[in-house]
């Protein structure tokens, strides 16, 4: 099942986007229906430490499942559907 899920990676590291949260939300909104129906997973790369709190908070409130991982020089925040029932 897992391999059927498309993963879309977006790099929103500092220099490009000044307001990480808004940019992240923009991407989430854009792919919302695909993430929700479980066909897609959105992975955001960020180096903004605050964003590892604000993005998951918002995404959880919006009804997604979120997983944050610390990589070498960035954070990877993956956003997916709530546990498929």
């Amino acid at each position: 099942m897992d391999d059927k899920i498309e993963t879309v990676e977006v790099d929103i590291r500092g220099q490009v986007c000044p307001a990480t949260l808004l940019v992240a939300l923009k991407h989430v909104n854009e792919h919302g229906s695909n993430i929700r129906n479980g066909s897609m997973k959105l992975v955001l790369k960020t180096d903004n430490r605050d964003a590892t709190v604000t993005i998951p908070d918002s995404a959880v409130n919006m009804g997604y499942s979120v997983n944050v991982e610390k990589k070498d020089n960035f954070y990877s925040i993956s956003i997916g559907a709530l546990d498929a029932r």
């Binding site: 000044p18 307001a19 990480t20 949260l21 808004l22 940019v23 939300l25 923009k26 989430v28 909104n29 919302g32 605050d50 709190v53 604000t54 908070d57 918002s58 409130n61 919006m62």
Partner: peptide, 28 residues
Amino acid sequence: MGTLPLKPEELDDSTLIELDPIGIIAGS
């Protein structure tokens, strides 16, 4: 929405307008 406010130093005014934050937040 239950998250932290924006920091002005992160976002200059013109980018703010360009980004359409109200639209994004409304969508979310």
